[in-house]
Amino acid sequence: MTSTTATTSLGLVADIGGTHARFALVADDPAQPDHAQRVLCADYRSLQQAIETYLEKAAISGDAIDRACIALASPIRGDAIAMTNNPWQFRISELKRRFGWQTLKVINDFTAMALGVPHVSNEHLVALGGGPAEHASPRLVIGPGTGLGVSGLVPTRNGWVPLATEGGHVDLPVSSDDEIELLRILRRRFGRVSAERVLSGPGLVNLYQAYAQMQGQSGPFTTPQQVVQAAVGNSDTLARATLLQFCEWLGRVAGNAALTLGSRGGVYLCGGLLPRMAEFLAESGFRAGFEAKGRMRSIMEATPVYLVTDDATALYGSAEALGNEEVGRLQN
């Protein structure tokens, strides 16, 4: 961590998800956040309260901060923000005025994740086949957390431009008879079944419960952590079958997005769920699902995939966004 002083002009960066919020301060280097802290969103009634408490605990005067970038697990449309998987609501203009910031950018969390990927060191990248990357080609950033985030990086002469997408809400790709039956069960519960209904933390539980119903079993697990632990530890056959299906579907969805984006620069798997199951993911049908694209198989076989294990990636990206004129909603 770097040190800060009262005379240093600082930027506040934040990564706000459905469950956790991360805050940090940056001066010049996006890859060097200071005073990083993670909190439970449920402990605070609003984003404003969470920021105020963070600054108090960090013993940082609000006058030392002149800019901020807040990454949210939510679409960003207009001034009023209502998060998708979090009850927090606010107006961008009011938040900027409350803290007296000269600049405020509010961006999608996976836009921030994408911008942060180039700042992740090699020690926090786990290779999952393919390669080498074509460095002048787009990169795909995708990952299951509270939802399924999807973004991308497009190279330009002046650096990377991130794409803000809602790619987690595409249709779930099914092929086998068992998958069709799982889809039927999920459709009876949710109607339309998006990729996120399965490829997320809550989605993993949805899939586990659907598997249990299909097999005529009780399915006692109620959290994604329980399913992952039982599957990785090979202590529950239903949980293991569920996680194997999860990984294969993730490979297919990531492969579809990679083909759409033309991301020969690599695919980067982010989020808090996958690092807990890195070895299982590598040995699963993820890569097979990723590459199974018919006449496009050779392209997919050459496309590298990396698991990102640095949980500060979105904070790096939020810091990077502060100096990128192409990024985010700028409040003047």
Rank of each mutant, 00 (worst) to 15 (best):
G203E: 07
K105R: 13
G18V: 08
A241N: 13
Q331R: 05
M214S: 15
A133I: 07
T165L: 07
G285D: 10
L186A: 15
R287V: 00
A278T: 04
F280H: 05
R276S: 12
Y54W: 10
Q215H: 15
L315I: 10
D236P: 04
L183S: 06
G100H: 08
G143P: 00
L95N: 11
A288K: 15
N256W: 13
S200Y: 04
V26G: 07
F221V: 04
S93R: 14
S318V: 03
N206A: 15
R264Y: 03
M83Q: 05
Q229G: 05
M296L: 12
T7A: 14
V198G: 04
P224V: 12
L269N: 07
G265V: 04
L148N: 12
V154Y: 14
A257R: 10
L128E: 06
F246V: 01
D29F: 02
D34M: 06
L10C: 12
I180Y: 08
V308S: 05
L183F: 05
L307E: 11
I185M: 11
N332S: 04
G265Y: 03
V154L: 14
Q209S: 04
D311V: 10
T260E: 15
A164I: 01
F23W: 07
V117M: 08
Q217L: 12
N108T: 06
P162V: 01
V154K: 06
I76A: 06
R264W: 01
R295W: 08
D28M: 14
A58F: 05
H35C: 09
T8L: 14
T19P: 10
P118L: 01
S194T: 12
D34S: 12
R97I: 01
S194I: 02
E94M: 02
Q245T: 09
M83P: 00
R22A: 14
G129W: 12
R197N: 15
R264T: 08
D43T: 06
F190D: 09
T7N: 13
V150N: 04
R184T: 12
Q89C: 11
L125M: 15
A42K: 08
D66R: 15
I60M: 07
E166N: 11
A112M: 03
L128H: 07
N324F: 06
P75Q: 05
I16D: 04
I180V: 10
L104M: 09
A31W: 04
A80Q: 13
A258W: 10
T2H: 06
Y208D: 10
F280C: 01
T8I: 12
A195C: 06
L72T: 12
N85K: 08
V305T: 14
A195W: 02
I51S: 00
V253E: 07
Q245F: 03
L274P: 11
C270Y: 00
G203K: 11
D310H: 14
P304S: 15
S318E: 02
G62R: 14
G272L: 07
R97L: 03
A257G: 01
S318G: 14
M113Y: 14
R184K: 15
M83A: 03
Y306A: 09
G17E: 14
P138W: 09
D66P: 03
A42V: 06
A133R: 14
R45G: 07
